[in-house]
Simulated assay, not measured.
Amino acid sequence: MTAASLPRHAHIWPRVAPGDFLDTYSVATPLSARQALELALRSPNWARSLLKLRDTLVSPLGLKTASSEGRPGFPVEYETEDEVLVGMDDRHLDFRITVLKHDGIVHIATWVHRNNALGRIYLALVMPFHKLILQSAIKRIAAAG
C-alpha cells in the first residue's frame, strides 16, 4: 500500500475544492477497477461491526444509514472500464470513493466535503477508523492480485 496522488484524469477531480478531504492509496494489481472496488467494500467482521455501531449512533441525528438507504454499499455515480465512482450526499457531508485503474495500478481515493460543523466533527471522529478500513481494503486487493 502506498499513499499516492490521484491521477488528474480521475472523474472525482471536478468535485474537489479547497478544504475538502482527499486521500489516495495505490497498489499494483491485475484486478479491474470494479473488482478492486468489490474487494474494498467487502469489509471484515470488525469493520462491519463498527459500521453497525456508526449507524446506531447517527440514526437519531437524522443521518443516512445502510438500513435507511435500504441496501448495502453505495450508489454508483459513474462507471467505465477503468474507473468506478460511488458515494452519496448527506446533510453533514458529501462523500465519494473512486477506484481508478491506470497503468496496472489501482488508485483508491476517498473524497469528503464537509457541509457544516457536524460534518467536521464526524470526519474527525471517524478518521482513525477510516484509515484502518482503507488499509485493510488495500491489503485485500494486493493479496488478490
Score class of each variant (00 low, 15 high):
M1R: 02
M1P: 11
T2C: 00
A3D: 05
A3W: 02
A3V: 06
A4P: 00
A4K: 02
S5H: 04
S5C: 01
L6Y: 01
P7N: 06
H11C: 02
H11I: 01
I12W: 01
P14H: 15
R15D: 13
R15W: 12
V16M: 07
G19P: 06
D20Y: 07
F21E: 12
F21I: 09
L22A: 02
S26Q: 12
V27P: 09
T29H: 07
P30Q: 10
A33I: 04
R34H: 12
L37M: 15
L37C: 02
E38K: 05
E38T: 01
E38L: 09
L39H: 01
L39S: 00
L41V: 03
R42P: 00
S43F: 10
P44Q: 06
P44C: 03
W46M: 06
A47C: 12
S49W: 11
S49C: 09
D55G: 08
T56I: 15
V58F: 01
S59M: 11
S59G: 13
S59C: 10
S59K: 15
P60F: 09
P60G: 08
L61Q: 13
G62H: 11
K64P: 02
T65Q: 07
A66V: 05
A66N: 00
S67K: 10
S68G: 04
E69G: 09
F74H: 08
P75Q: 03
P75F: 03
V76K: 08
Y78H: 15
E81L: 07
E81S: 12
D82T: 10
E83D: 04
E83R: 03
L85Q: 02
L85C: 05
L85F: 07
V86R: 03
V86I: 15
V86T: 09
V86M: 01
G87I: 03
D89M: 01
D90S: 09
D90P: 11
H92P: 13
H92S: 11
L93P: 09
L93D: 06
D94Q: 09
R96Y: 08
R96D: 07
T98G: 06
V99P: 03
V99L: 14
V99S: 06
L100A: 08
K101E: 14
D103K: 15
G104N: 12
V106K: 07
I108C: 02
I108R: 01
A109Y: 04
T110C: 05
T110Q: 04
T110H: 03
W111P: 00
V112P: 01
H113R: 09
R114E: 10
A117S: 13
A117T: 09
G119L: 13
L123T: 13
A124N: 04
A124Q: 07
L125G: 12
L125K: 05
V126D: 05
M127Y: 04
F129L: 15
H130Y: 12
K131N: 11
K131H: 14
K131I: 15
Q135F: 00
Q135K: 15
Q135T: 11
S136V: 09
S136D: 15
I138K: 10
K139M: 10
K139G: 07
K139Y: 05
R140H: 06
A143N: 14
A144V: 03
A144R: 11
G145F: 06
G145C: 06
